[in-house]
Design a protein around this nucleic acid. Sequence first.
DNA 1: CATTCGTGAAGACGAAT
DNA 2: ATTCGATTTCACGAATG
Length: 323
Amino acid sequence: MISERINADTEHARATASEHDTESERSDETCPECTGQLISDEEHGEIVCRECGLVTKEASIDHSPEWRAFDTSEQYEKTRVGPPTTQLLHDKGLSSQIGWRNTDAHGKPLEPRQCARMQRLRLWDERFRTRNSKDRNLKQALGEIDRMASALGLSKDIRETAAMIYRRALAADLLPGRSIEAIATAAVYAAARQSNTPRSLDEVAAVSRIDALEFTRAYRYLVRELNLAIAPADPASYVSRFASALDVSRDTEQRARTLLKTAEEQGLHTGKSPIGLAAAALYAAAIQTNEQLTQAAVSEVTNISEVTIRNHYTELLDADTDV
DNA sequence: CATTCGTGAAGACGAAT
DNA sequence: ATTCGATTTCACGAATG
């Protein structure tokens, strides 16, 4: 089931890789709010309106090639035949496979004897392609990473990053004694953080087969052992997602951003959870713009308690009036 | 009635020892 | 491994509109 999905993916990549130039993906659709043009923000894995910043979809998939070309000769050089290599397949998509049809090259059916022989060949082919335990491990983990990233609506770039992190963990012998799923989950979370498209611990844990405790433990372990440089999440990077989930006006969303900015300048950030701040900023902004938005609603979509929102939004408003 | 606000106890987490 | 401090959450009741 998983392998089918991966195959479909690379098929797609093969089909589109040669057609696309470096132009960023542009959707023909228009924004439901203000009829502005929708553009897909590949970096954040979101589709946003150019005019008002409304996020309509979070699940964009990056179909463009992974390289950039600055003129036609460069493009010619870099264009390859076949799918781009990818971190998402355990052999980076380089190996081939013996087909399953019991026919010869001309399409004629094989003799029973030959069938049996092909069966044996296929078996060994499979064994060689997933040669040792590490490769088998990778195969399973990459499937999981792909599954979770899709469920979270993360772009292909991020899936690649997650796969990269997982490979590093595997190379550093960090796996023994830990579950594959835990490390894979941690890799996805780390990749999302690194690319400024953070998903909260809760969100990631929800799509993982592993419970939150083991997941956070694995994540900390990964960060420490691999020296991953991960900056504290920026509250602002949550705002657009929450704002569209709450259906607030773009005025409010903008205000929330500026509130966070002034709060940060006054060092209000330290030690507080970025998600909590983002939630509070949205609520505070709604008050300023006279948009009615209940604490309960914000709490609902952000998974932040109303109490925390209460405590933070006054601070945010104070910081704003001081300036 | 719904929403907001404030409280204290309790849990979770990171840092320091 | 334990302790400590800050933050967050839960549960409740009161106030506000």
